[in-house]
Every structure is written in structure tokens, then in C-alpha cells.
């Protein structure tokens, strides 16, 4: 897994991708550091974090196996 830092709140999570559409995100601790948490459903991925992960993929910081 590779670290990704959220551009909004600075939280670092670890991310791995088995394909373009598969994503695993391991947090360390709970998600209370996310300022959006209270407004999101428990299952929602924070949109800022999603953007940060997308950027990390585009910049090649997360490896995405070819399918």
C-alpha cells in the first residue's frame, strides 16, 4: 500500500489498487480528522480524499496493474 495525503485535511491514509476500478483505503484510526465526516454517510468516501487519490494515480505515486 502507498501513502496518500488528503489535500484538504492533511490526513494520511494508505491506498492500493488492483485495477483502475478497484481501490482499498486503510485509515489509521477513525475518520474524525476529516472535516466533512459529520455530513457524509458512514460509507461515503470523502470527495477531497478521492480527488487526492485520483491525483496520486495520475502522478504515478500509486501503481495500477494493467488489466
Amino acid at each position: 500500500m502507498d501513502p496518500v495525503q488528503c489535500s484538504r485535511c492533511g490526513t494520511t491514509v494508505e491506498v492500493s489498487k488492483a485495477s483502475a476500478a478497484q481501490t482499498s483505503i486503510q485509515w489509521y484510526g477513525d475518520s474524525s480528522s476529516c472535516p466533512l465526516r459529520a455530513d457524509l454517510s458512514v460509507g461515503d468516501t470523502c470527495p477531497y480524499l478521492s480527488d487526492s487519490i485520483r491525483d496520486a494515480v495520475l502522478e504515478g505515486r500509486i501503481e495500477v496493474p494493467a488489466t
Binding site: A21, Q22, T23, I25, Q26, Y28
Partner: peptide, 9 residues
């Protein structure tokens, strides 16, 4: 108990 998210392809 740590948060973990997993989306399937």
C-alpha cells in the same frame, strides 16, 4: 476498528 474502505471492480 480502524476505518477501511474497499471498492470492488
Amino acid at each position: 476498528s480502524q476505518r477501511f474502505e474497499f471498492e470492488i471492480d
